[in-house]
Structure formats: structure tokens, C-alpha cells
Design a protein around this nucleic acid. Structure first.
Lengths: 239, 239
DNA sequence: GTGCAACTTTAAAATATTTGAATGAAACGC
DNA sequence: GCGTTTCATTCAAATATTTTAAAGTTGCAC
């Protein structure tokens, strides 16, 4: 069940058998979540943290005028709210953008991990800190990249993250978001997202149809996006 | 020396005497950094994490075309790169926006903390996770708030964060950034940042002159910004 | 099969934002 | 005191982006 989480962590540092057993023990309560359902509600005080097993989820906030901004996208093997272990109160919601399967680790058990397993604690800490690195990269993309480069960057990032957990086939991956939802990721209007996408298409860089994105020219896409994987910490080293 | 860090952490949960003593022991190597000097360089692999004692610092990235985006601002009492303890390689630089004083904790000592002091570990983890919450709030502001609301939000946030560490006098705080630097925070051109600032001024909300920002109407500023402190986790509770 | 609903695409007008350039004011070195 | 630099401000033209609306497409319920 937690195989993808293990792959995720193992990509950054080796976990030993005890640590894996510990994760297997504390992560349970598997459940299904339907499309557009909240996995975690803004303002709630969860006593467990949720691991995404299958599907795509998003952290988001809605402003008073109804505008929504997605602040993070999650792929299988990600914790969607491990930060809530420390934060206690959710300052955002987490929604299922496709039908999802999730499981959870209680905060009580996570506290025990911090008391008994320093290295595993650091690995979980690492995973929240990688979330932060992704946030920073999104800030850079929103603030200083062209819209085309921003979209290209998002596609590069998702491709890379899905590849880690083995969810890329050939040059394609499943991408359940509508263009309106993608616009909420980039902070654009639907119309402009569509125009931006057409540019990537007409440049022969990507195909995006029927909820499948295919990379047609990885090298040029990376170049336009100035995509550099450093922030994803794909180096396996002692942490 | 680490008094402001203590205040920062204590605002979220009580530290006991041992924990404070531990922080005092491991944080040292005080040094001064001049304006515009890098405190930490992008691409470097620091073996210590830096605590800001005095001054304002910023995390930033520079794109190939020379555009800079600031992804975080730091006030005294903040660690500017505690995340590097887990991340190992810096995916961004940290620059002093005023002359600064800093001190540092070695990653060796931090590892020891994770092995011997679970609660202190969680408090340090918490502080990286609050950085992440701030990143998310910035993403929301960049993507879906008006420029005026974005700037108002930034001012509310800084006011609040500086207040925690006692650096607000009356309704004013020291803000050493030039407008060009502030533009790099919001992801705007200098010209447009200036226009946006004039709006806040002409609405009688803030004064900003000689590197001092004064809040003239907190209630309306908060309203325009839709500023809600939840994300800053100012509740003292067991973590 | 028909009609509805969700999503994508296109168009045109209204706004917002950037760029480049010029001006004025204040601070600084010598 | 003089020239130099940095910063804030203003302007106008060029672009980018949003808004509103309409039309085309697809899948699905009935």
C-alpha cells in the first residue's frame, strides 16, 4: 500500500527495513475519495496525516470573491497534509481532482516516530521541506517566468515527480485536471491558459488531450521552462 | 543572542529550560553581513543553518534573463535556511537586504537534536513548515489577489511577524527594501509597484517613507488584504 | 436518438502591466 | 561645492491579460 511513498523517500535516502516496517504499521485507514470531494477541509484540525495512494489531489484556497488558487498538486506517494502534524489547524483545503485512494497516519503515531526513530523523522521532515521547495519554485514561476515558461515548467515538474513513482508511460502521463483547474494552478484566466497551451502545442512541445499529457520534445521543453531538478532533491544521500 | 528565536518558537508552544539551553549551546559563530552580500549562496552545500539575529534577509532566485524573484523575506529570529539541514544543496540564494547579524547551528548538532530531543525537533520542524505556509500564502496572493491586495497583505504579514519579535514601534516598522526590491517580492515591475503603492497611500492606509512603513488604518488594510493570521500559527499549543 | 451538461476554443473589447525613457530629489565621495 | 549615483516618480507607447460572450465538441442520461 505504501510502496509509492517508499519509492518517494528512497529516491532521497535509503530507508532500512525497520523504518519501512514502522511506516507500514502506522499508515492505515485506507479509504476512497470521490472527484471534487475534500480530502481535508480548511479550518479543520486533523489528528492524522493523509497519504495519497492513487489519483491527483490539490491544496487550495478560495478568496471572498470566489476566486480559487491551487497552491500544490499531489501525486500518488505524497503526503497531502503532513505539515498539519505540526501546524494543527489547516490553513487551506485539500481536494481530490480525480477519484482518489488515500490512507492515513495518526499524529499520535507520528509523535512516537519523533521519539524513537530520528532518521525516519528526518525523512518525513524532508518530505515537508521538499513541498516547501516546490512552493518556492512556483513562486518564481508565477512572478518572473512567462506564462508559456510557467506552464512548461509545471509539465516538466509533474512529469518528473510522476516518473519517480513509476507513473509515466513512455512520454505520457495521466492528467485529470480540466483547463479551468489548471488555470487555478497557474493563477490565470481560463481563456489565457488555453492560449498559452496552444503556444506549447503549436511549438510541437506537448500534446494534451483526453486527460493525457505527452511530452513531444523534452529537451526544448526543459529549455523553455529553465527546468532544473535541483529543487526536487533527487539525489540519494545521507540525510 | 537567540532571544528572538525563542520568542518566535514560544509564540507557538512553550520551550522548557533544557531546550532553550540546548539551542543556546548549538547556535554560535555570530558574524556580520553587509548589505547586498549573500548569506548563503545558491548551489552551495552548507553544513550549518543560519539564524538571522538582526536585519532583513531574502531568499531569491535569478533567471537566465536576469530577472530576480524573492521567494521569502526573513526577520530577526528566523532561520533563513533551516530547510538546508534536510535539503543539503541550496536551490536558491539568501541575501542580506540590510546589514545583518547572523549566527549558525551546525548540521551535526542539529542531527544530535533529532536524536535526543523529540519536542525541540518538532519545534524546528514546525518553523520550516511555517515557512511553507507563508510560501503558500504568497502563491495565493500572486495568483488571485489584486496587486493592491497583494501589497497590503505583504505589509500585514510583515507587521505581524515583526510584532512577534518585538520589532514594531507604535504602528511603524523598519523596512529597508527599495521599491525595486519590493517589486522583486511581488513579481511586479518597479513602475507598477510604485503605482500600487500610491493607491494604498491615497486610500490613507499606509505611509512608506525613509525605509519606515507606518500603518495608518489597520482595520481597512486587513480587510483589503483579506489578511487572516491562521497561516502564521500564532496559537500557543502543544506541538 | 435527443437534449443536457461540462469542457474547449475563438473573438472582441476593456483593463492591467511592462517597457523605455525622462525628471527630480536625496545621499555620497572627493 | 561639484559631479555621480541611487532611488522614486511620471509619462506614453507597446503588450499582456481578463472579461464577456458565443460557438463548437464530447460524453452521458434518458
Amino acid at each position: 500500500m505504501i510502496e509509492l511513498l517508499i519509492r518517494n523517500l528512497n529516491a532521497r535516502d535509503a530507508l532500512d527495513a525497520d523504518e519501512i516496517a514502522c511506516l507500514q504499521r502506522i499508515i492505515n485507514r485506507e479509504r476512497a475519495v470521490g472527484v471534487d470531494e475534500d480530502i481535508v477541509r480548511e479550518g479543520s484540525r486533523p489528528n492524522e496525516s493523509t497519504l495519497l495512494l492513487d489519483g491527483i489531489a490539490a491544496r487550495y484556497r478560495v478568496l471572498e470573491d470566489g476566486k480559487r488558487q491551487i497552491t500544490a498538486l499531489h501525486v500518488p506517494g505524497d503526503f497531502v497534509d503532513l505539515h498539519a502534524f505540526m501546524l494543527k489547524t489547516m490553513d487551506h483545503g485539500v481536494v481530490a481532482l480525480s477519484s482518489c485512494k488515500v490512507a492515513a497516519a495518526s499524529h499520535r503515531d507520528l509523535t512516537t516516530v519523533t521519539q524513537t526513530s530520528p532518521h525516519l523523522t528526518r525523512m518525513l521532515w524532508l518530505s515537508t521541506v521538499i513541498d516547501g521547495a516546490i512552493h518556492r519554485e512556483w513562486i518564481v514561476a508565477m512572478g518572473r517566468r512567462s506564462k508559456k515558461a510557467h506552464l512548461a515548467h509545471l509539465i516538466c515538474e509533474l512529469f518528473t515527480r510522476l516518473d519517480i513513482v513509476g507513473l509515466v508511460n513512455d512520454q505520457s502521463f495521466h492528467f485529470p485536471l480540466s483547463q479551468a483547474e489548471a488555470a487555478d494552478v497557474l493563477g490565470l484566466s481560463l481563456v489565457h491558459l488555453n492560449k498559452t497551451l496552444q503556444k506549447l502545442r503549436s511549438d510541437g512541445l506537448v500534446r494534451w488531450e483526453d486527460h493525457v499529457i505527452t511530452i513531444l520534445d523534452w529537451v526544448r521543453l526543459v529549455e523553455i521552462a529553465e527546468f532544473d531538478t535541483v529543487y526536487l532533491n533527487l539525489v540519494r544521500e545521507p540525510r
